[in-house]
């Protein structure tokens, strides 16, 4: 028995995706599809993702790299005649795909997003140098040296303009109440996982 155009996946999205209960309200006007800055690189623009969810195409949606193309520009949100929080739904879908291990392998934005989070979760603040070096070395050491060399002029310029601190590698910014901070994030994650059924 086919499951297409039934509510199963839509229901899952409503439960597990940030602002997912809005998906059913899309009226398929296509305004969002025409609003993404990286529009040409979306295999399925938001409008289509919403229809796919309603059509029950779980696998296709969650393995897609479309929602990883979202720059969080909020252009769609202010234009959508139905006022869907599209940006958050994109984030939510990306999060669900990531949590289920379905997001495409080597999705750079996904990697960067994780790195960013881990970076901030450690110290409470983002360490820009570690973050950027991490990004360059994400594909392994050799490629990392190449990436870093390619962007060397940028990095040096930033150091010269006192906008990148090489000393950050050994500490740098961070908050004081790290233990409270960590406990807070742990709790929040726990509540969220329970609510969204992530074991």
């Amino acid at each position: 028995m086919s499951e297409n155009y039934r509510n199963n996946f839509l229901k899952e999205v409503e439960e597990r995706v940030e602002e997912g209960h809005w998906v059913k309200m899309c009226m398929q006007c296509g305004v969002c599809a025409g609003s993404c800055p990286l529009g040409a690189h979306w295999a399925h623009p938001p409008q289509e993702l919403f229809m796919m969810i309603r059509a029950g195409k779980r696998e296709e949606v969650l393995t897609s790299d479309s929602m990883w193309m979202c720059t969080s520009c909020y252009n769609c949100v202010v234009r959508c005649p139905r006022k869907l929080p599209i940006t958050h739904i994109m984030h939510g879908l990306a999060n669900l795909a990531y949590r289920l291990g379905l997001s495409p392998k080597n999705q750079t934005t996904q990697k960067f997003a994780s790195m960013f989070w881990n970076n901030l979760a450690q110290t409470g603040r983002v360490n820009e140098l570690k973050l950027s070096l991490g990004m360059y070395f994400k594909d392994g050491f050799g490629q990392g040296i190449k990436n870093a060399m390619a962007m060397q002029s940028v990095g040096l310029g930033m150091v010269k303009a006192k906008r990148l601190n090489p000393m950050e590698l050994f500490g740098g910014h961070g908050i004081k109440d790290k233990s409270g901070f960590h406990a807070m994030l742990k709790k929040a994650r726990e509540i969220e996982d329970r609510r969204k059924n992530f074991a």
């Binding site: 155009y5 309603r54 059509a55």
Partner: peptide, 8 residues
């Protein structure tokens, strides 16, 4: 839509 009717 709020009641969950699917429009395609």
């Amino acid at each position: 839509q709020e009641k969950g009717v699917i429009f395609t």
